[in-house]
């Protein structure tokens, strides 16, 4: 079963999509591996990407798995809902 990937706010607009069902190329899949697979760093300004760490998520991007905050290297299971969250600004 594929993983449901969701993007929000500025990340969604930069990528041009909000939700996709994705079959992972690498197993075990992690948020970091799917970020790379989906080429979500494309268009990120150089200064926001962490220099020398091609695999790193850009600073300030957080991850949620099944609607709970998770680490970028947390293992994903089939059918999981994975969201990439740009810096939060509520209240």
């Amino acid at each position: 079963m594929p993983i449901q990937v969701k993007l929000f706010a500025s990340l969604r607009e930069r990528a041009g999509w909000s939700e996709r069902l994705v079959a992972a190329d690498e197993l075990p899949a992690t948020p970091r591996s799917l970020w790379r697979q989906l080429r979500l760093s494309d268009g990120v300004e150089a200064e926001t990407a962490r220099a020398g760490q091609a695999d790193a998520l850009p600073q300030g991007i957080r991850v949620a798995i099944n609607q709970a905050f998770a680490a970028p290297d947390a293992p994903l299971a089939d059918g999981d809902e994975l969201a990439f969250l740009p810096p939060i600004s509520g209240g």
Partner: peptide, 24 residues
């Protein structure tokens, strides 16, 4: 805590242009 840990994203609309607010 809700300003930093509840997923909300603000976009300011000014002069017909929207700008995402990153952080608090």
């Amino acid at each position: 805590r809700l300003k930093h840990e509840a997923p909300f994203w603000k976009r300011e609309w000014s002069g017909g242009v929207g700008t995402w607010v990153e952080g608090n």
